[in-house]
Simulated scan of single mutants.
Amino acid sequence: MDEMLQVYVCYAAARDEFLRPLKVAPGTTIGQAIEMSGVLEACPDINLTTQPVGIYAKKQTLDTVLRERDRIEIYRPLVADPKDSRRRRAAKKAGGEDTAAPAGQDI
């Protein structure tokens, strides 16, 4: 019999985090491991049709076959636009007001 693989399923919710070690059979996919982990019951806000998943910060599909010690991550939508955040930090560092136009508008 093939040896079981040790993998981890993690999800960082707004207030809680979910991290569960899991033993899976060789050939198990990301989607199957997520279902086996219980994260969908523990965090009902997860929607795998709209939320991306990955292994060690690299996006993958739900049908990706797992390898030993993979850490499956379920990503939440961004709260703030990174470009807007960067503009605000740059304006603050320069000591001036934020003069950047709202996204999609020219000055």
Rank of each mutant, 00 (worst) to 15 (best):
L48N: 08
E97S: 13
V79R: 09
Y8A: 08
K93P: 05
A103Q: 14
Y56V: 02
T99N: 15
P52L: 09
M1N: 09
M4A: 07
K58P: 00
L5E: 07
R87E: 14
A80S: 09
L48F: 09
I72V: 07
L19I: 10
R86G: 04
E3I: 06
D16H: 11
M4L: 08
M1I: 04
Q105K: 13
R71Q: 03
I55G: 07
G104C: 04
E35F: 08
Q60M: 15
T50C: 13
Y56D: 09
K23N: 09
Q51P: 07
I74Y: 01
L40E: 08
E41Y: 11
V53D: 12
G54L: 05
N47H: 11
K23P: 01
T29L: 07
R88D: 10
K23W: 06
D63F: 05
R86D: 04
G95Q: 04
A100E: 12
V53H: 07
E73R: 01
I34K: 09
V53A: 09
E41T: 15
Y75W: 03
N47W: 01
P21Y: 05
K59P: 02
Q105A: 13
F18S: 05
I46P: 10
A91Q: 02
I72G: 04
R88T: 02
D45A: 08
G27R: 06
C43H: 15
T50A: 14
T99V: 12
Y56H: 12
P82S: 04
L78G: 04
K58M: 13
I55K: 11
P44M: 06
K83Q: 11
I74S: 00
A12Q: 06
I74E: 03
R15K: 15
V9L: 11
K58L: 11
L62E: 10
R20K: 14
Y8F: 14
R71A: 01
I34D: 04
N47S: 09
A103K: 15
E41M: 13
A57K: 10
Q105F: 14
G95I: 00
V65F: 06
A91I: 00
D16P: 02
P26A: 05
A80T: 07
I55F: 10
G104P: 08
R67S: 11
G27L: 12
C43I: 03
M1Y: 07
K23Y: 04
I74G: 00
Y56L: 07
L22P: 02
G27H: 10
E73D: 05
D98W: 05
A91W: 02
V9H: 05
G95T: 00
R76E: 05
R20P: 02
A103S: 15
D106Q: 15
A25N: 12
L5V: 03
G38M: 09
I72N: 04
L78F: 02
E3D: 14
Q60G: 06
G54V: 01
A91L: 01
E68A: 10
D16A: 06
T99S: 14
Q105Y: 14
G104S: 09
I34T: 06
Q32Y: 10
V9D: 06
D16S: 11
G104E: 06
P102M: 09
A42E: 11
P26V: 07
M1S: 11
E97Q: 13
R86K: 08
V7Q: 01
P44Y: 09
G31I: 04
K93C: 02
V9N: 03
R67V: 03
